[in-house]
Computed example of a mutant assay.
Amino acid sequence: MFSWSNCSAMKQFDLLLVRLKLPTFCVGKSMDDKSKSSTQKGTFDGSRKDINAAIDRIREFTGTKIIFWDLREPFIENLYKPSVSQSRLEAVIEPLDVELNQLCDIIVEPLRDRVVTSLLQASLEGLLRVLLDGGPSRVFYPTDAKLLEEDLEILKEFFISGGDGLPRGVVENQVARVRLVVKLHGLETRELVEDLRSSSGKLGADNQTLLRILCHRADSEASQFVKKQYKIPKSSA
């Protein structure tokens, strides 16, 4: 299992950080010195913003690449196929652990939490893709909600890593949006349909989310409602 203590910075990156540290400018007494110092400070402030923006883009790309490309087959394509009970998230944790350890071999300590938070966010986006846009080969039953909740806890604790990983509060905040979707999967079809018809928002979700859950629901009531409500023609098969 991944341990934060395994994270080590490469010497090249250490040197790079040293080179990127902003110099301290001495403010002279003359107006020319003050003007020059102000110009230099503005230049380096702009450089700092550009560097931070570049770091943000790289970390976002890194998390997305790992989940949606490197782990696409076990995560995006095969998780919960043919059913939740037969393909649990535990199967994804090992390759995710390998990717995270490899990532921590090349990132510097000051960037660790930012990069790993991006991986957490990408993991949750991947899970939402599976739960809401999983395609016709994925179906969910209300009874699956308990297993889905267990899997979400496994993913959460993986990133907390027994207190050595990301702060628990940060992870909990990120996980909250997926937890709502899992909760909705546990509701009866009748409850989902009633909330969708009334657009009351009582269940805490928008109509699009409710519709996607109904489209993945393996019962005739959900199928009939979706076809009738949205005028979907019957299959010719």
Rank of each mutant, 00 (worst) to 15 (best):
K41S: 07
T64H: 14
S30N: 06
S123K: 03
R19H: 14
L20Q: 15
R48T: 07
K29S: 02
L15T: 09
E109P: 04
W69C: 08
D32S: 12
D70T: 14
W69R: 06
S83L: 03
L100F: 09
V115Y: 01
K36V: 11
R19F: 12
Q121A: 09
K21F: 04
R48Y: 06
G46L: 08
I58G: 01
G46K: 08
S87L: 00
E94F: 10
E90T: 02
V98D: 13
K11D: 12
A53P: 00
C104F: 10
K11P: 06
L103P: 01
G46N: 05
K65T: 09
E73W: 00
A53C: 03
I55L: 07
G42S: 06
N101I: 06
E77C: 01
K21C: 13
E90W: 05
I58R: 03
E77L: 01
E94W: 06
L79V: 05
K41P: 02
K11F: 15
S85A: 03
T39G: 10
D56R: 03
S38E: 14
E77T: 13
L96D: 01
K49P: 01
R112F: 07
I93N: 03
K29I: 13
T43M: 15
S37T: 15
D33C: 05
L96Y: 02
C26D: 14
I107G: 01
V98R: 14
D56K: 02
K81C: 09
P110A: 02
L111K: 05
S118N: 11
F61N: 05
D97P: 04
I76C: 00
I66L: 00
S35R: 10
K34Y: 04
S83R: 02
E99P: 00
V18N: 15
T24K: 12
T39D: 13
F75D: 04
D33I: 13
D32H: 11
D113N: 10
D33L: 07
P23F: 00
S123L: 03
I107T: 11
I106W: 08
D50G: 02
L20T: 12
V92P: 00
L119D: 04
K34S: 02
T39W: 11
D33A: 10
L71N: 10
L17P: 09
I106Y: 13
D14H: 13
D32T: 13
A53N: 01
S123E: 06
C104R: 04
L103M: 08
L16R: 12
D97Q: 14
S85N: 14
P74D: 10
D97Y: 08
R72N: 04
N101V: 05
L120Q: 01
I93L: 05
I107Y: 02
T24G: 09
Q40V: 12
P23L: 02
A91D: 04
F25R: 06
L16Q: 11
V27E: 11
G63F: 01
Q40P: 00
F13N: 09
S35A: 13
V84T: 07
T64V: 09
L20M: 13
R88F: 09
D56V: 08
L111T: 04
V27M: 12
K11R: 12
L79M: 00
G63W: 02
K34E: 06
E90L: 03
T64C: 05
D50E: 14
N78Y: 08
K65L: 11
K36N: 15
L22Q: 15
A54T: 14
D105F: 07
S30R: 06
V116W: 11
R112L: 09
K11V: 15
A122S: 05
R19V: 07
